[in-house]
Design a protein around this nucleic acid. Structure first.
Length: 574
DNA sequence: CGGCGTACG
DNA sequence: CGTA
DNA sequence: GCCG
């Protein structure tokens, strides 16, 4: 079962893990030593209680699910105290960004008020990033008198911190689950520089081996620089400076890799030397980093904002069905130099080779970004359309994927996967056409842009020229559409998985992020000699499907079978 | 100097 | 050449 | 553009 691998995975890094002893104290205990007293008993089987308030719904959901998995007891702030729920803890950690409001909420629980600490949300995200209880000291916003007094009896010791840091950073070389203590320090002493360097150099090479937490949950310190690098990525592709399209693309992608590498760095970069220690940052990117560190701006990026051609090309490229090659051709050869012109010419010109483009352009000015909450609501609507009788009529189960699954706060498209429920998994026929027509009737789907629901059944695929035998499998049903919800238009992707056992692979593939997927597939190729795709894992030589043992039923099973540390969706936002 | 994800319309 |  |  998936839950088994879940607990074993969590136990390994969890708060109560048996760590190598050092000075008679477990690692976990050392980390907690500097905390207020009740937390120092953290390695007993008594969980700490955490209240999350007031936080955004999505954030609360993700944090509570994962803190719970780490052994915390989660108390809902609106939850009326019931008799059977005696507090199993002596203290209370309140995770909040608004201590005043939180205080009012907590004041109703008078009996716990003796030991209450209010901490920043950042603490909770650190716990998730490091997979252990980190000291709460740097994150304390406010605490009650009783705990304040107790904490002063346990003075903070730098020695302990240093030990912890060394042990943590030596572990981080193998895998980036644990971050050194200095990540949490506000100021950075000289002695920390070497440790930082070591940490940066110790990060695993492949993005799928790292933990990169979604921006919406954890505000990465180098976010600004990452965004600039991604703008340059776009610029390189639009310019196609020297060489072929493919070469421009690969050079552009290097900037994306650099950005992705930066995203999991938990402290703000101070020097180019820090940056140099990272994978994927070579001379070209470093010169950009230097410019940014010195001026706070990058000239090339400003060009993207001021240059008319680049601005228009960027707009064109945002149109579905219009890539950078066509964008350039429209501007340079056909002299279409504004969005209005493009819309006008395309709607008049019936001979347009890009049929999709014409269909899409009618909605171009209406398309809006969706919030996370709305994306979840859309999944609900789709799922209801698949069950009109109230008795499960199409027997489907749905899974939100894409950026929203990773916890991103907004996005321009919603990706939804579905497949038949277990009992009906033997039936591999397509229900996509039925589903689409239902969604068109309810008014959710406004326009189908592209559809590939293959009703013939098997698709023959020859994975490798060397393979004499062809591989047979069902093609997925994929539909790209424009949908409408609450008066907003947005892109909706539906994916039907016909072979239920492929569902976990498809879920991984459609949950992104793009750089994460690339590195996952690259890693599989390099380390295992396997080709990873949304259907499963295949041997490079024979082309045959690799029989994993036991057969993966969930994403977690897949990571385990590959020998990778599990990354939750919100940890894949590179 | 070769490789960089993989599959689909 | 476009999409994910 | 960067890495092995």
């Amino acid at each position: 079962m998936s839950s088994k691998s879940n607990t074993s995975d969590r136990d390994e890094h969890g708060p109560h893990a048996k760590r190598p002893r050092k000075g008679g104290l477990s690692y976990a205990n050392q980390g907690l030593k500097t905390d207020v007293d009740f937390l120092s008993r953290g390695d007993s089987d008594r969980p700490i209680a955490v209240i999350l308030t007031p936080l955004r719904e999505r954030q609360q959901q993700i944090l509570s699910r994962n803190l719970k998995a780490a052994g915390a007891k989660i108390l809902q702030f609106d939850e009326r105290k019931s008799e059977d729920e005696q507090p199993a803890t002596e203290g209370l950690v309140v995770v909040t960004d608004n201590p005043k409001k939180a205080r009012r909420v907590v004041e109703n629980r008078e009996e716990t008020m003796k030991n209450v600490v209010f901490v920043e949300t950042k603490w909770a995200t650190r716990v998730l990033a490091e997979q252990r209880w980190v000291p709460i000291q740097p994150y304390v916003l406010e605490q009650t008198k009783a705990t304040q007094h107790e904490s002063s009896t346990v003075p903070e010791s730098d020695e302990i911190n240093l030990d912890t840091a060394l042990e943590a950073s030596s572990k981080s070389r193998k895998n980036a689950d644990t971050l050194p203590v200095w990540c949490r320090k506000k100021t950075c002493e000289n002695s920390d520089i070497a440790e930082k360097r070591e940490f940066l150099e110790g990060l695993p090479r492949f993005l799928c081996e790292r933990c990169t937490i979604t921006q919406a949950i954890y505000e990465a310190p180098n976010n600004e620089l990452c965004k600039l690098l991604e703008i340059i990525e776009k610029k390189r592709r639009l310019e196609q400076a020297g060489g072929s399209e493919a070469e421009a693309d690969i050079r552009a992608r290097a900037y994306r890799r650099a950005s992705a590498a930066l995203k999991c760095v938990p402290f703000k970069l101070q020097t180019v030397q820090d940056a140099q220690a990272l994978h994927s940052l070579g001379p070209r990117v470093l010169s950009i980093v230097q410019e940014y560190l010195m001026n706070g701006t990058v000239r090339e990026v400003q060009l993207m904002e001021t240059d008319h051609r680049l601005r228009i090309l960027t707009q064109f490229q945002s149109v579905y069905g219009l890539g950078y090659v066509s964008a350039r051709r429209y501007y340079d050869e056909l002299r279409i130099t504004s969005m209005d012109q493009l819309v006008e010419k395309s709607s008049r010109d019936e001979s347009s080779e890009a049929n999709v483009l014409v269909r899409y352009l009618g909605y171009i000015d209406k398309l809006a970004h969706l919030r996370w909450k709305d994306a979840v609501a859309v999944v609900d609507m789709v799922s209801q359309a698949a069950n009109v009788t109230g008795e499960d009529d199409l027997h489907l189960r749905f899974q939100l994927c894409g950026g929203f699954r990773r916890g991103e706060s907004s996005g321009h498209d919603v990706d939804i996967l579905y497949c038949r429920q277990e009992k009906y998994a033997h039936d591999c026929s397509s229900v996509m056409k039925e589903l689409i027509s239902r969604l068109e009737r309810t008014g959710l789907i406004v326009k189908v842009l592209r559809e590939s629901s293959d009703t013939n059944g098997w698709n023959e695929v020859r994975y490798h020229a060397r393979s004499s035998r062809a591989i047979f499998r069902y093609a997925h049903d994929v539909v790209h559409a424009i949908a409408k919800y609450k008066g907003c238009f947005f892109r909706l992707d539906l994916v039907g998985v016909r072979d239920a056992f492929e569902f976990c692979f498809t879920t991984i593939s459609w949950s992104g992020s793009t750089p994460f997927q690339r590195d996952l597939r690259w890693w599989c190729e390099k380390k295992k000699g396997w080709t990873f795709n949304e259907h499963g894992v295949f041997d490079r030589e024979s082309g045959q499907r690799v029989k994993l043992n036991p057969e993966p039923k969930s994403e977690m099973d897949v990571f385990a079978a590959l020998g990778l540390t599990y990354r939750a969706p919100f940890e894949r936002s590179c």
